[in-house]
Design a protein around this nucleic acid. Structure first.
Lengths: 209, 209
DNA sequence: GTCTATAGGTGGATAGAC
DNA sequence: GTCTATCCACCTATAGAC
């Protein structure tokens, strides 16, 4: 989900910088002045494209969700097994971490109580969409024998998102990507427990999915 | 971990209010003015007790860790099985959520890049201490047969913390405590997989540990 | 220890010229 | 669409009286 330095129009470049600032610092810890400095334009110019910070926040989330869903669509179109689909989903988060960022919506979830109402709704919409996609993969995979888990796939999907967001957040605080990978790999292994735990032996390294 | 309205000295009452504000809004989204209004004192008075916001942040984290470790000590002293100890650990987070708060250190982990250096170190210290305690419980429980997992207990401990922090963060955004509980219960069940999964049957409700 | 008063800076946002 | 100039509210922090 890391974005190359955009050559697009001004609104797009503003969103690119703002996105990076939210993902690294949070919505409450950056200002129009930060964006203006990065783009070498004035603050007034930014307000022409995004009159209020609430407007900017909403459009950030909506664009982030569109991009996210586009990637999920690519995964769906790649003719992969369900375990591999899930691994690809996890890889999205790995990429975010490699860019030294927090997930945009994970960051905003922490700041939830201080966000404009419009951002709050958009945020839930993002997570709902993620969990719907995950639940479908989980259901299909369970029917197929690729996954084993108890209970509703929707609940497992919630757990998956929560685990990845938490692991991302903690790994970033430690500047330690391995911290994320071990957690993510364990998550995948637990879902494929029927296969990965055949021996139930002690393993010293990470469990491969 | 929720604290009753303190009747202690001023410094303590300042910390109580600041703690609540960080847990609900974040370190970057509250000000000395907010605390002053809540305690009906002036901002200048606050600066007498905590000269800079960095001082306040550091003391918040250090006190939070002391209280946390005190509770963990109580769990250790209660003569419980390891599964029950882990359940009690999860219950700490449940209590935070019931108070409509985020974990202090989870919130700060999201804001990590913007924090004073002193807070950043204290934050890692908090998580390190948590994970040491968890790893000890996990190791003991694995040797005892209460838990089954592959790999180093330290890695599992990291996963546990990440999952709980993430679930807390997401549940708070949805104002939905059940969202946290299903994730937490699933986490516990996975660690006790050897017992909980004897039948490997489809269950519709939550899996009890 | 708490107050009044204030400094010096930055926040989001707007009016109006070009 | 971008600029200059400006507004007012708020921020953290300090000086000095009581």
């Amino acid at each position: 989900m890391a974005r190359p330095p955009s050559n697009g129009n001004t609104a797009t470049r503003i969103l690119d910088v703002a996105e990076r600032l939210v993902q690294t610092r949070g919505f409450n810890a950056f200002s129009y002045a930060d964006i203006a400095a990065a783009l070498k334009v004035t603050k007034a110019s930014l307000h022409y494209h995004f009159p209020t910070k609430a407007d900017l926040g909403l459009q950030l989330i909506e664009r982030y969700e569109r991009n996210f869903l586009k990637v999920l669509g690519q995964i769906d179109g790649a003719n992969l097994g369900d375990a591999e689909k899930l691994r690809r989903y996890v890889d999205i988060y790995s990429g975010v971490l490699r860019a030294n960022r927090m997930c945009l919506c994970g960051m905003l979830a922490a700041e939830f109580a201080t966000l404009p109402k419009s951002s709050q709704s958009a945020l839930r919409h993002f997570f709902d969409a993620n969990e719907r996609w995950l639940a479908a993969v989980l259901d299909h995979g369970r029917a197929d024998g690729a996954f084993q888990f108890n209970g509703a796939s929707a609940c497992v999907a919630q757990s998956v998102v929560a685990t990845l967001e938490g692991a991302l957040m903690l790994a970033r605080s430690y500047g330690d990507a391995a911290r994320f990978e071990t957690g993510a790999t364990r998550l995948l292994a637990d879902l494929q427990a029927g296969r990965a735990r055949v021996g139930l032996s002690r393993a010293t390294g990470a469990v491969n999915g």
